[in-house]
């Protein structure tokens, strides 16, 4: 049984301000948690709270500036929709591209291609250039193309907000099916409903730091309460200005 331990992970961005001036900004500060094999872990928080940065650290795109991540689970991979899609290629070709980008061999992708076509529900449009697709169709192709990617640690960033309600429902069902296996996954979202459905525990990030951690219902409620409070403050501020 492997696990993943994040210990005081901090990531700093250096922003360019003028010709030589730079300003540092901490995107993550002292974030610690532990994932065990089979965990379904949620990361919630507002835009710019550090969620995506955390996923980048876990997937190996960034290395932490301070602290460390020790991963004995195995390969981590980010499930990203439409990654590297090329407008002039057909749905089939883009599905192959997505598989190759995820590190698969061409023949592995080809062995799944009929299942991908089926799952995307695109029918004959699967052979057309994706430039002719609607946003929803592209999203369905993207989801289908990355669905058969089975890393030891799956990182999901707002993955299945694409498509219509029916597809979203189907995607959520498929994901929960998949997540019942002993795959470990980290799910990043503002869609609190989906988070509650898919995850057991997690963290709430605020300005790059952990604001709350533990049981998913607890952190989701705390997060929603803080969101309501912010909305109220905003309304008061606007009302104050108007008055």
């Amino acid at each position: 049984m492997g696990d993943l331990i994040a210990e005081n992970v901090s990531v700093r961005y250096s922003l360019r301000k003028g010709v030589f001036a730079r300003r540092d900004k901490w995107a993550l500060r002292n974030v610690s948690f532990r994932l065990e094999q089979g965990d379904s872990f949620a990361v919630i928080g507002r835009n710019g709270s550090g969620k995506s940065t955390l996923l980048r650290v876990l997937s190996g795109v960034f290395s932490p500036d301070e602290g460390k991540v020790v991963n004995t689970l195995g390969a981590a991979s980010l499930l990203t929709i439409n990654l590297g899609f090329v407008q002039h290629l057909s749905g089939r070709e883009n599905a192959i591209m997505a598989g190759l980008l995820q590190g698969k061999r061409r023949r592995e992708v080809l062995s799944n291609i009929d299942a991908i076509k089926e799952l995307s529900g695109l029918g004959d449009a699967f052979e057309d250039p994706i430039a002719s697709y609607s946003t929803g169709m592209t999203g369905r192709l993207g989801f289908a193309a990355s669905f058969y990617n089975d890393p030891a640690l799956l990182l999901i960033d707002e993955a299945f907000s694409a498509g219509d309600d029916e597809f979203r429902q189907k995607a959520t069902e498929l994901m929960s099916e998949k997540l019942k296996s002993d795959m470990t996954f980290v799910f990043v979202s503002h869609a609190i409903g989906q988070v509650r459905q898919l995850c057991r525990r997690g963290i709430w990030l605020e300005d790059g730091q952990i604001a709350a951690e533990g049981d998913v219902d607890t952190i989701a409620s705390a997060y929603q309460a803080s969101q309501r409070k912010r909305a109220e403050q905003r309304r008061e501020a606007i009302a104050g200005k108007a008055g």
Partner: peptide, 24 residues
């Protein structure tokens, strides 16, 4: 060398050429 990378390079080069051809 990972064999997958060669397949990726070939396929992306093919995609680039095809896109370029489709634009005119």
């Amino acid at each position: 060398m990972k064999k997958n990378l060669w397949e990726l390079i070939w396929f992306r080069a093919y995609a680039d050429l095809k896109s370029e051809a489709s634009r005119t």
